[in-house]
Design a protein around this nucleic acid. Structure first.
Lengths: 335, 335
DNA sequence: CTGAAAGCGCTTACAG
DNA sequence: CTGAAAGCGCTTACAG
């Protein structure tokens, strides 16, 4: 008998249609909330059939027909960083609430991987792309040229303007400078990655600029660079370089908390007292700080609030709306 | 002109067929690696067309036809826990290497959310489900009844046997007991969540059993329970209860590192010296410990190795193979 | 070695 | 208010 349900397979739209005694078109309209042109008796029959069979629309069929899926790709450089994990978690939640599903891709900050994921997600008909720290790459350029919905988080799109969600990084750096000024600490330094993203560069610049406004000479503030696979290793490399050349400062800016953790370790190893002899101020304010890093003041970034804003930006892209940056508030948490 | 490509749309299989001057069936076979029955000249023509057009198979079409997608659902209770983030990251990598994509779902350990995600992923034709700490729920029972591919990580399936990836939790607890024994510490205690998963329960049991083998009386080892939205809050609740009733022990087992962080904070607040007066041993050995928690010994769990093993289990499910547990090695890292 | 044809589940102009 | 029909991109017996 043609059109019969195969046992074991989930019920399809046509199963619902047959059960309710209506056409597939009618069921489709009702499933999609188009109640305007169906009699209430039909609507009831269809809803009863849907409930009875436990019907859920098959997204492969829908995607094929609509030429778009519910899939949003999140490209994140590194889930080991609690800040990135917090962004991923809050974005996952917000996407889900809006009816999408998040596919996670770990780029390790590498352009080839970013491109591979961009291509793979295109084949999945991804509806949009959230790049939590984009790096320049040919595939990113191609996606922009195709007019894909792209939202950049934390780090600005290095290849041109894209909707952005983040904080005022220059101001965050300046706030750290202000705090050291309040404390009367003038022997300052900073560490940084050898190759800087826009966000880190802005934090360092904001810090140095404000220091000069407070009367310090920029040349008197050493900024040591480090390299490594993650912010822990990179921070460790940088702090050793800094201390080797300039000794320990009295106040140290670490543009991420993981770098601050690395500095703390080097301090422990070299007998430097934290925060007694050197005050460290980080950026991120990871959850763990309040539990096990009472020595660390840090600029809190509201990563848990990023998700809904990211989704708003994405939906604005789909509607072709303007692409104003969304800058969220930060605050220095003192410990 | 019928069959013409719409500009802007990605090339389809039939575009490739037209360009190469062959049928869609032939292209499909070659795309899927079925080279056995095509002449080498045809293969070359098709491969040239694929490269020339930049063709990638559309997964919606493929999923619809094959009735299965490349999507694997990962249900994780909480990405804020670095251990969970590490599992997610390594699994994402391993799935990607095997040609799948991972959709992340944050269940917050809640049965309703677990069921909602299970249903949503079914509508996406998910090929398999990775449950990192499953909770009992009707939807889980239904998925098992349908014969879905389900792999449980860390925590065993509370509703019946499922392929499992984890460590020997009893042994991990026993190893902690052995370490305290070596150190000659006999005033022991532990904290735990009020409602325990299999993994935590086994850690506590293994610890207590080994303690009795070392001549301690089980009743002399207080185990305080706590509640809270995450292991930090829950651990904090538990340690306060423990200390309030029994005072600080000399040796404390925390069945997760986050609980150890909470204990450390309470120690700081109450002036208890760690590790001088109380030694804490955790389980997980989070990456950060070596940087900022030199006071914490911990049982290292090789979360970074979980991914490939999880994928092996999943593929075994698909092939209907046996479901032997995969127990990975752990070791106590002393600090 | 190759292709025509059917069909996976869905949506959407179009006709009535 | 409702339905028949076409088609999204792909795969797979089947025929030759």
């Amino acid at each position: 008998m043609p059109g019969m349900r195969r046992p074991g397979a989930p019920p399809s739209l046509s199963d619902v249609a047959r059960t309710a005694g209506v056409s597939a078109a009618t069921v489709s309209r009702i499933v999609n909330g188009d109640f305007g042109r169906a009699s209430s008796v039909t609507i009831h029959k269809v809803q009863a059939a849907i409930a009875g069979l436990g019907y859920r629309p098959n997204h492969a069929g829908r995607s094929l027909r609509r030429r778009e899926s519910q899939i949003v790709a999140m490209l994140s450089p590194n889930l080991d960083n609690p800040a990135m994990a917090a962004i991923a978690a809050s974005t996952e939640q917000a996407l889900r609430d809006a009816g999408y599903v998040m596919v996670l891709c770990d780029t390790h900050d590498r352009p080839e991987l970013q491109d591979e994921y961009l291509e793979a997600m295109r084949a999945q008909l991804a509806r949009g792309y959230i790049l939590v720290s984009a790096v320049p790459s040919p595939g990113l350029r191609a996606a922009m040229a195709r007019g894909e919905a792209i939202v950049c988080v934390n780090r600005r799109n290095p290849l041109g303007p894209s909707p952005f969600v983040g904080i005022d990084n220059r101001k965050a750096g300046a706030d750290v400078a202000d705090r050291f000024h309040e404390l009367g600490i003038t022997a300052l330094a900073a560490i940084r990655p050898a190759v800087m993203s826009s966000s880190i560069a802005e934090r360092i610049e904001g810090f140095l600029d404000r220091c000069t406004e407070h009367g310090l000479k920029r040349a008197a503030i050493p900024v040591a660079a480090g390299t490594g696979p993650d912010h822990l290793a990179m921070g460790y490399d940088a702090i050793r370089a800094l201390v080797a050349e300039h000794g320990w400062p009295a106040g140290l800016l670490c543009p991420s908390d993981l770098m601050a953790y690395a500095a703390y370790r080097h301090a422990s190893e070299t007998g430097r007292t934290i925060p007694g002899a050197t005050r460290i101020i980080g950026i991120d304010n990871n959850t763990f700080n309040q539990w096990i890093a009472p020595w660390l003041s840090s600029v809190e970034i509201p990563y848990r609030d990023f998700g809904p804003v990211v989704v708003e930006q994405l939906e604005a892209c789909w509607e072709g709306a303007a692409l104003a940056d969304r800058i969220l508030p930060h605050r220095l948490v003192q410990r």
